[in-house]
Design a protein around this nucleic acid. Structure first.
Lengths: 181, 181
DNA sequence: AAAGATTGAGTTCTCAATCTTC
DNA sequence: GAAGATTGAGAACTCAATCTTT
């Protein structure tokens, strides 16, 4: 374990070399991968990744229709982030919004025919790209380890933020992960 | 291997269950982790992660001074992304820009005293957070695997984009990874 | 007051266009 | 024309404030 004295005299445990390399490689990998996936999806289908993510979630629900709050929880997005995104997607005809009768505060979000066609067209090349850049090069044990590592970090992040409001730290704990492929 | 017939009759190899779970967990982990690190850095030091990333890179160079293009390569950022970021940081007094004598197209970027103080103050709590949320919960073999997986994906991404311009696909191949901790 | 949702302002990022110097 | 860099427009995200309904 490396310790370094800072100017303030505080004792800081820096990352060791292995951790440092892993951390920087992880960040670089994520940045390059998502940038590439975004570019290919935009070019092939005219959708951004945020568009696609929303459409996938909707398409996995019966009738392509769900409450906005449920969608926000599903995606682990802030309410305002979802609202802004839905506004843009509505303008482009990918989704529609309607009011909720049981609870008149609520809003429903619904896939349009155009939105459904868009996500069905975008999914195949996207999945192929995820395979090509990531999974085709990984062994099964590595895939399993990637999930284990990710879940470990998610658990430590979720346990950290216990009493915090809104969406920064999740107010939901029992939903499935965000659908992105 | 699962095959699915789409409407267009194309044969698509979808992700299998293990891959699907790993992929979604990976995306969720990265999103939560970076959001949390961003929030803590903003609260503790008034810096965003992009600010910090730039300052770290500068502080690791002699004199806290380097060419803009070198910085862009170091961070694997587009020229325009860096330029916008530097404009904001210059306004806040974190860096200064000056002209290059040898090549009058070029620009130098230099850490100000304030910028150096900011990054030195921000680094310790940031590193602690990275340890707390990620590395403290990982075994050495998992850290090594994370790096291996990341480098595998980076390699497949780098080999994919060979003849492409500017920065989307890297025009550099022999530099160190982006410094972010 | 709390819950569901929207809005506006400010930051960040990408893309295409531009400008200057080589 | 290519290289180094900046600019403007639009998309995406966060935060705080707001509005309506419960």
């Amino acid at each position: 374990m490396i310790h370094v004295m800072t100017e303030s005299g505080t004792d800081v445990r820096w990352l060791d070399d292995d951790q440092q390399r892993a951390w920087r490689a992880f960040l670089e990998m994520h940045a390059k991968l998502t940038a590439q996936l975004n570019r290919e999806m935009q070019a092939a289908s005219g959708l951004s990744m945020p568009d696609f993510t929303v459409l996938v979630s909707l398409s996995e629900h019966p009738g392509g229709r769900m409450r906005a709050l449920e969608l926000a929880r599903d995606l682990r997005w802030e309410k305002s982030r979802l609202s802004h995104q839905l506004s843009r997607m509505q303008q482009r005809g990918l989704i529609e919004r309607s009011h909720c009768d049981e609870d008149r505060r609520g809003a429903f979000v619904e896939l349009t025919a155009q939105g459904r066609a868009a996500v069905e067209g975008a999914a195949p090349p996207h999945v192929e790209a995820v395979r090509r850049y990531l999974f085709d090069a990984l062994q099964p044990a590595q895939v399993a380890m990637l999930e284990t590592i990710s879940r470990t970090a998610i658990a430590s992040l979720d346990s950290e933020c216990d009493g915090k409001g809104d969406s920064a730290c999740q107010d939901t704990a029992e939903l499935d992960p965000s659908p992105c492929a």
